[in-house]
Write a protein that binds this DNA or RNA. Structure first.
Lengths: 225, 225
DNA sequence: TGATGAGGTTAACAATTTGATAATAACGCT
DNA sequence: AGCGTTATTATCAAATTGTTAACCTCATCA
């Protein structure tokens, strides 16, 4: 459950603004609009949007100028900037991208494609991990809380699943016992020393697969083979 | 001084492959090529590219299938995937992006635009430097708590690892026995004189490599060759 | 309402690994 | 050779983890 993303759209055509706003809101984003470059800069400063969609040709400051100004300010380092322009000439596109934009879209664009692009950008920005991950024969389905090993479903209890999922989130990395406690059990709960071991044991037993390695004095790590 | 990025291109048209390869190499990227989906999967596994450019229509597995397979494997979480296709229909584009691709480009594309896009993608990618130190054949991987020597994994016990890690943190510097005691054992613990020697010996034995030098009356230092 | 069972935790003990020490050998220097 | 230092080795204690069974809690259901 991530926080609602804020998107700022700057375009001087009210129709386009409205269509895009409607579609992005329907997708669950919070939308702010601006009708020209200066408005866009103000709104950006005020709302700190996660994504800024800029038309290139706008009254006052044009999109590329706006992008330039934004990119010089460290507070917008983590804001995505995307151009959406009717200009489809190569030079403008290259210039736009080199100004520091993250993408360059050309009008007309279908709402569905726009949303896919936006989602893709946020997916990468948040380094989101997929719901289903695969390690050779082993499949971890986070959505259904399910493990499959060679097409065989294996039922893990919640803590067991969360523990395996944590270890598998960074294969090879050694997780300290303390980190495991914090991430699986939370910082509030205090449990005994042997709790982790017992869960590890149950996982090993159920999977019957040599994928969790003990690093003595340090922690555990997940590795296939 | 970032490492040269590796880009894998998969396309069944040799001409396109060559043009893209040429341009990306001129931009300073390392390029690997594949002629179909299965080759692409193999090459991806082998080279762990930072970016994978996939044609959609290819013999064998098509691009979307390849993307699907890659996206389920956590080892490719940090690999960018971009489709480059002659298919410009909306449905395919949306499907491609929803498969987990980072961008969808349509042919024909000018080399300059392609390069701008690629640069923009890498600019945004959060590239965490891995917590590893390399000295020629020797790799110290703090995250995995292991040592690699010529692709051979060597397991050191905790104190051994910490000791080697300390010495290697400043190659050439002579660490006094006292400093070593303070940093590896802490100020509280008091251990005998010979303890350090014994650990040094174990490291030397396991690595079977002449990288720790004794400076008599002073301490030890780490040096390759 | 009490029986049942799954999930989770703990205690007790076994097994294993690690780390420290002591004893002795080897080294380097004067 | 004598001295101080480091290397080597075996040994033992301590720390850590593995294993098992017992226990507690809670939800479910007859």
């Amino acid at each position: 459950m991530s926080i609602v993303k804020k998107i700022l759209i700057a375009d001087d055509e009210p129709d386009i603004l409205e269509i895009i706003q409607f579609n992005l809101q329907a997708e669950g984003y919070e939308v702010i609009t601006a009708h020209n470059g200066n408005e866009a800069l103000e709104a950006a400063k005020k709302h700190q949007p996660n994504l800024i969609i800029l038309d290139i040709m706008m009254p006052g400051k044009n999109g590329i100028e706006v992008c330039n100004i934004l990119r010089m300010q460290p507070q917008f380092n983590d804001s995505l900037i995307v151009f959406l322009s009717a200009l489809s000439d190569e030079a403008t596109e290259v210039r736009g991208l080199e100004t520091g934009a993250d993408d360059y879209l050309t009008k007309p664009i279908s709402p569905k494609v726009l949303i896919s692009k936006v989602n893709a950008l946020f997916r990468r920005l948040n380094n989101e991990e997929p719901d289903v991950v695969k390690f050779g024969d082993l499949i971890i389905d986070r959505e259904r809380y399910l493990i499959k090993l060679k097409e065989e479903e294996i039922i893990l209890a919640r803590k067991e699943f969360e523990l395996l999922d944590l270890l598998a989130s960074k294969p090879g990395k050694v997780f300290l016992r303390n980190d495991i406690l914090n991430q699986v059990w939370g910082t509030e709960v205090i449990v005994g020393d042997r709790t982790i071991d017992v869960h590890i044991r149950k996982i090993r037993q159920k999977l019957n697969l040599n994928c969790i390695t003990t690093v003595k004095g340090v922690g555990y790590k997940f590795e296939m083979q």
